[in-house]
Each structure stands twice: as C-alpha cells, then as structure tokens.
C-alpha cells in the first residue's frame, strides 16, 4: 500500500483565507479562572520564601533532601520526615537565552532576554534543581557551573511566591552589591 497510490486528505489553508472570509471561523475566548491551592509541602515552601528562605524536605530512608519539598518521597513511597533549610545559593546546571515569550511572540530588539536556568540549590541533595531565571549578568557571560545567589524582594514586598526571588545572580557580583545594600536580602 504505497502512499503514492492514495489521494491524501488534509487541505492546507492560510491565515489570509480566514481574514478574507474564504474559510469561515468562529472565534471564542473561554471564560475560565482558577485558584490553585498550594497544598501542604508547597504551602510551607512558599511561606518560607516569604521569609526569605528556601526550605526542603528530607526523606530519612533514602536520605534525599528534596526541592521542591514534598510530603511523600516518590522513590521510597513513604511519608517524608523533616524540614531542612537550604542556602539561597546554588550552581547553574543548564540555562537558555530566550528570545521568545510564552505565546511565541518575540522579545523586541534591545529588551532583555529571558534567562531561564536549572539551578542546583546548596544544602539540598546533589542534582536537586529548580527552574528559575538569571539576572544582573551579561547573557554571554553565563556559564554552566557558575555559582549564583538568590536576589530577594524586600520583605514587605514578598507575598509567598517563587517570584519573591526575583532572579539569581552570579555570586561574585552579589558580594560587591551586598556591601552597598546591606540588609536588603534576608
């Protein structure tokens, strides 16, 4: 049954076929809103972010100190045991320099790129990374293995969200700045 022996379906149309009315469409915006409960583990995680701290959860069976924290260990399949504070520093495991917004629109020329990274947090078990963004760094200076530190919102601006950390910046730059702006962090 070679494909060449069949007339294949699927008729390609263009955006202009729609705008000119050659093909009719019905445009609809769904009206949906959600309020997501944070749950037990992430609830505490967010609460501590509001305090300027990163907290993990430890499983005493496998010994993993897990980020994001969870009330059950998915490997040992048992309840986790204790809360453990981590550092607000870490290592860049991988990163991207992103020119695209969530909806595939492009970031205009001259505006800052999105700099997502997987950051392995100090004090959690090796390999425990979180997704966050980098900042206060030239994109071409970012390297895998780079040490970074969380940059926190001011305490009264925090709301118990992952965005209470505005970004992570290279540790060396953090030291210089922290002399000028002491007390701005934790």
């Amino acid at each position: 049954m070679e494909l060449s022996k069949f007339e294949l379906g699927g008729t390609r149309i263009k955006q202009s076929d729609i705008s000119k009315g050659n093909v009719l469409t019905l445009a609809v915006t769904p009206k949906l809103e959600y309020a997501w409960d944070d749950g037990v583990a992430i609830g505490r995680y967010l609460e501590e972010l509001g305090n300027g701290k990163i907290i993990a959860r430890k499983c005493n069976k496998c010994g993993r100190i897990m980020l994001p924290p969870r009330m059950f260990c998915e490997l040992c399949w048992r309840a986790t045991d204790e809360w453990v504070y981590c550092e607000d520093t870490g290592t860049v495991n991988t990163f991207s320099l992103c020119h695209v917004n969530w909806d595939a629109s492009r970031i205009p020329e001259g505006e800052p790129l999105h700099l997502p990274a997987v950051i392995h947090i100090d004090g959690a078990s090796p390999g425990m990374g979180i997704l966050h963004v980098l900042g206060e760094v030239e994109p071409d200076k970012i390297k895998i293995g780079m040490k970074v530190r969380a940059v926190w919102k001011k305490p009264d601006e925090r709301e118990g969200s992952i965005t209470d950390i505005t970004h992570f910046k290279p540790v060396r730059a953090a030291r210089k700045k922290s002399k000028k702006k002491s007390g701005g962090g934790r």
Binding site: T94, N101, A117, V118, L131
Partner: peptide, 21 residues
Amino acid sequence: HTTEQALDPTLIWIFALEYNR
C-alpha cells in the same frame, strides 16, 4: 502551576535547557 508558571515560562525553555545540558 505554583512553582514554575509564575516565572512566565514558555515551552521552548525546557528543550533549550535539556539541549544545552
């Protein structure tokens, strides 16, 4: 929804991150 979406991610991020690694 709680720990990642607030960072305004786009789908390509995860592939770019994996590709780079």
